[in-house]
Design a protein around this nucleic acid. Sequence first.
DNA 1: GATGAAGTACGAAAAATATCGTAGTTAAGT
DNA 2: ACTTAACTACGATATTTTTCGTACTTCATC
Lengths: 126, 126
Amino acid sequence: MSHKNKPTDTELEILQILWQKGPSSVRDVNDTMSQDKEIGYTTTLKLMQIMNEKELTQRDTASRTHIYSAKVEEETVKSGLLKSFINTAYRGSASSLVMQALGQSNASMEELDQIKSLIQKIEDRK
Amino acid sequence: MSHKNKPTDTELEILQILWQKGPSSVRDVNDTMSQDKEIGYTTTLKLMQIMNEKELTQRDTASRTHIYSAKVEEETVKSGLLKSFINTAYRGSASSLVMQALGQSNASMEELDQIKSLIQKIEDRK
DNA sequence: GATGAAGTACGAAAAATATCGTAGTTAAGT
DNA sequence: ACTTAACTACGATATTTTTCGTACTTCATC
């Protein structure tokens, strides 16, 4: 029921890592993030502590090294972000976003077929 | 060739208005924005002045009321935003974004058909 | 049991955005 | 000419997000 369910850019990065790798220590997350850009350990730590306060994550403090995991669902968060992105960038038109995304994607045949059949399914239930 | 071509959320809102309505005064833009949320006139003014410095807009100062217009292309900006959104939120997979967008869209039959035929076109040239 | 490496907590600075007040200017109507 | 309404300019403040330093704690190892 959280009103403000929109993680900041950096928070999203961390969530991605937690979704992808599962429960992780701050060290783990920081190592992963350090592959892309320079970021201090305590910076990551602080971010994750804040995320915990916001209940974006939860953590197991049983051992000295705390283990964080995502508390919000990947699907839920992404769908919220997508909705808001469609609203701000495409004035609410999902189909125009889809068109543009298809245009600049290099989706495989399989993926394209998958999308086609999804469209078929949607059309069928209309 | 600008490196940092990513407008902030508010800047994007303003660009949307300029793209949609064409060259407009600060008053025009502020009136439009005020329909959605409370925002002071000088706030809008300042934002647009900054956008002008960043060359997101250009303005005609011939008459007392300055007329602003977008200096960046709608397609260019959106495609940049989309790319970065796909990267940060969907780990680079355009097709998974498309799937999710279709799922939560209420696209019409016509739009769906349009998308299908776009997919067909892409498949054909593979 | 001393030492050092690896943690956490947390305040506070820095940076990026957004908001607004005030001063001064211009134009139009009276 | 005066007054008022509508502008612009711009500094200052507020808010949000990111970054980091410092202090303190815990654990392993020598």
